[in-house]
Simulated scan of single mutants.
Amino acid sequence: MGEPDMEQRDPNQLNDHIQVKFEEVFGEPDAVRSVDCVWKNSYKCFTKTFSICYKLLTLICALPIAFCWGCEFACTACYHVWYFTPYLRWFEMTMNPIRKMYVICLTAFVAPCMETMGLCFSKIVVKN
């Protein structure tokens, strides 16, 4: 793993759904308008508060949360490598004889009936 891209921090657009802009939260219809300075300062207040709070929260929480998620994904990888995948392989090996018996029974008993029904129904002609 290399260094993180400091410009493009969401290259897979994982969080497009949480992009919040002032215009997506507040909107005044034409019939109701506040004073221009209130609208402009509300915009500044919202964007600055959002930015500062986000930076403060990430400063406090990002490292511990990243540590926890690192542990979570490490546990998931370990589980898959050392338990889940070998279990699936064991299950596949164990069920293979049963699968073969099932195929033999279907081929011996069900397939002839289905072929016969197919032949019978293939003779039906539907006219308009």
Rank of each mutant, 00 (worst) to 15 (best):
G2K: 00
P4F: 08
M6I: 13
E7R: 02
R9C: 11
D10R: 02
D10G: 08
P11L: 00
D16Q: 14
H17W: 11
I18W: 10
Q19M: 13
V20G: 06
K21Q: 14
K21W: 11
F22H: 04
E24Q: 14
E24C: 03
E24V: 03
V25N: 10
V35E: 04
C37N: 10
V38R: 01
N41I: 04
S42N: 07
K44F: 02
F46C: 00
T47H: 04
T49P: 02
T49G: 03
F50I: 02
F50D: 00
S51R: 11
Y54G: 03
K55W: 03
K55C: 05
L56A: 00
L57I: 11
L59S: 06
I65M: 09
W69S: 04
W69M: 15
G70L: 04
E72H: 15
E72V: 08
F73H: 10
F73W: 11
A74W: 05
A74K: 09
C78K: 07
Y79G: 05
V81M: 14
Y83L: 13
T85R: 13
T85Q: 12
L88G: 04
L88M: 12
R89E: 12
R89S: 12
E92D: 10
E92I: 06
E92S: 08
E92Q: 08
T94H: 06
P97A: 03
I98C: 01
K100W: 07
M101W: 09
C105T: 04
T107R: 15
A108I: 09
A108R: 12
A108C: 10
V110A: 12
C113K: 05
C113Y: 04
